[in-house]
Amino acid sequence: MPAVALWQVRAVHDLSLTGLAVVAGVLVVATAVGLWHRRRDGRITAAGPTAGASAALAGLGVTTGAPVLVQFSSAVCAPCQATRRVLERVGRTVDGVRLLEVDAERHLAAARALDVWRTPTVLLVDGDGRIARRVSGVPDAAELTAAVRELTTGMPR
């Protein structure tokens, strides 16, 4: 089929004409995205009020009385394992904090209600059942420990 071969050759030629610009553009933009993501990833931030959060948390089995670290995970998430280990470390370091890991895929409604868009996401829920802070990506163990201590010292006992 010579006609097919002809436009195929032309298409490849078109690619090579603009290919360099595409490669350069993609690498520049992707580097910017990567650097931006690296700065945000794992950073503990203040959580804004989320409507329906307490109902969603209760639905996941979060009880009040003590701070809870709620980790949203999924099977396709490599850093979820590392995040789990960080949480376990924090759990051993700080007395009274509880850990809860949630399969985000099985709890899509909760993920929606709690504004979780990616895994791993960890919610720091205080003893009153309010989301005090949140972090997406693998948190630093020391930073997370400090943030959890803040929650426990803020409680009456």
């Binding site: 999924s74 998430c77 850093p79 979820c80 985000a104 979780v116 990616r118 895994t119 791993p120």
Partner: peptide
């Protein structure tokens, strides 16, 4: 997968 999968499922 971490960034896209849950967003896609949602």
């Amino acid at each position: 997968g971490c960034l896209g999968y849950l967003a896609l499922r949602r």
